[in-house]
Amino acid sequence: MTKTILAVDDSGSLRQMLSFSLKAAGYGVIEAVDGQDGLAKAKQQKVDLVLTDQNMPGMDGLSLIKALRAMQNYKNVPILMLTTESGDDMKAMGRAAGANGWLVKPFDPARLTEVVKKLIG
């Protein structure tokens, strides 16, 4: 069965790129424009992995992770941050919020799909 990934980013081109790369690797992709939209879509349909940006208008990535981790069916779903932020303090906050990994932009499609495959097969 096709695994589904929720890609949350306020940049339309970045979502396009993520969608293209992940679909080419055989995954289904749901796109969300910010944390609030991501949360709404995660509630509508259970996804296998969440990939989220940090800096977004409205709800940011860390807040989205906290909200997802508070939901019973997202306690064990892998969540990856994909952001321009590379500071150790931000990474520590991501880890504390419940992220499973931190990817610094820009991403390389092959390396991204490798990580995703490692987490959800």
Binding site: S86, A99, N100, G101, L103, V104, F107, R111, V115
Partner: peptide, 10 residues
């Protein structure tokens, strides 16, 4: 640079 960034799994 526009090279791919670091990846860290927790």
């Amino acid at each position: 640079h526009m090279n791919s960034g670091d990846i860290e799994l927790f």
